[in-house]
Amino acid sequence: MSLAAAPPAVTVIRQTTSGRLALTLAALALLTVAAMPWWASTGTIRSVLVLCCYIAIAQMWNLLAGYAGLVSVGQQAFMGAGGYALFVLAQTVGINPFVSVALALVVPVILAVPVYLLLHRLEGPYFSIGTWVVAEVFRLVCTNLPLVNGGAGMSLRVMGTYSAFERNVAMSVLCAVMLLVTLGGSYWLLRSRFGIALVAIRDNMTAAASQGVDVARLRFLVFVAAAAGCGLVGAVYFMAQLRITPGAAFDPMWANVAIFIVMIGGIGSIEGVLIGALVFFLAERWFASYGSVYFVALGLLTLATALFAPKGIWGLVSQRWDMSWFPTGRRLANPLRS
């Protein structure tokens, strides 16, 4: 008796040619950023640092809204918490400022737990408003807290013990680390089994829960991870500024920037964050001097994108050309044919 022919093997593809090229370019970009003190001026380093902060905080918001379905407008709460933690640890306690950057992340992580437990029952606009209220509460607390010098803010005078070149080296390395943690960490997460669950939550939360995905647990973990990422952005950004105040630390502008970047670039994709951040960075550098007209133009651009290109610039590109710089899904190379 002859045996039935075995079905052809199925190969699962997790990487593409464009993806390999993008990873190579990303690695070179990180090395270039880390080596900036040896080829770039201080002004260029500060500009690149701001761009890196835009990318990092936008990716944290993208992870929240684009995958976990948590639309926050108050992530500046954790950015400010990370910044203030750095200043207290380095200036008040006396810990090495570069070590304090890592230690400062403990504060936003700890704060994120009760905040999420307080807000997780809210959905949609109520959750968004709740995150904004929390950020305002954090600002008011810092404004009246003697430990952080209240509304007068704090200066990072301890950085004066380091030369300009040493500070540039530290800022450049921290920029590279920040991108590696936020972008690289998100890419790793989305390619893991947790990433599959997050994509399922993004597509249909009810269906994901019916298939055994622990939606509540994953949303909590993403919220805490995003808080840590925003805290890292705050620590690096305000270390470069050498000064922090409640108004700057908890400025709603950061949430606006993150939302604009993700909406313009494309929500639910790492590529969209990179494109949107570059668009915003260049627009800010070239047109910010126009004042209110500049903000109106950005608002109209966001509205037009939401109406006519809801998937953003990257959505249009990926529809026209079937490619992915940072593929997180799985494809069948030779699917079975019936």
Rank of each mutant, 00 (worst) to 15 (best):
A226S: 15
I244A: 10
A249M: 11
A235F: 08
V233F: 03
G229R: 08
G195Y: 03
T245G: 09
L156H: 11
D214W: 05
Y237P: 05
V158D: 02
V173I: 15
F165M: 08
A248D: 14
F220G: 03
A227H: 06
A216F: 09
V224P: 04
A164T: 12
F165Q: 06
L189D: 01
C230F: 08
A228G: 13
M171H: 14
V169R: 05
F250P: 03
Y187T: 00
A170H: 05
R202G: 00
L198I: 12
M205Y: 00
A176E: 05
A226Q: 07
G229D: 10
I201C: 02
L179Y: 06
L183E: 09
L183F: 13
L218A: 07
V233P: 14
M239V: 10
G160L: 06
V222S: 00
M205G: 08
T161V: 05
G247L: 12
V224W: 04
A249K: 09
M178R: 04
G160C: 01
M159Y: 04
M154T: 12
V213D: 13
T206M: 08
Q241N: 08
A207Q: 07
V222R: 03
G234A: 02
A216D: 14
C175H: 10
M159G: 03
G247Q: 13
M239Q: 13
L242Q: 12
L174E: 10
G247M: 09
C230T: 12
V177C: 11
A227I: 09
S186F: 02
N168I: 07
F250R: 07
L242V: 12
S210K: 02
V224C: 15
V236R: 01
G195T: 01
F165E: 09
M178L: 15
M239G: 13
A249C: 09
C175E: 11
A227G: 08
M171Y: 15
Q211S: 11
V233M: 02
V222A: 02
R217V: 13
V158Y: 04
A235Q: 09
A170C: 06
S155M: 08
P246T: 09
M205K: 15
S163V: 09
V215S: 07
A197G: 12
M159F: 05
A176Y: 01
V199R: 15
M159T: 15
F238H: 15
L190A: 05
L189W: 04
L180R: 02
L189A: 04
Q241K: 11
F220W: 07
Q241V: 08
V236W: 01
R243L: 10
W188T: 14
A207Y: 03
V213K: 09
V181K: 07
V173C: 12
A170W: 07
A216L: 13
T182K: 03
A216S: 14
R202V: 01
A235W: 05
A207V: 14
T206F: 00
R157K: 06
S163C: 10
Y187H: 14
D203L: 06
F238P: 13
A228F: 05
S192M: 06
L232C: 05
G212I: 00
R193P: 00
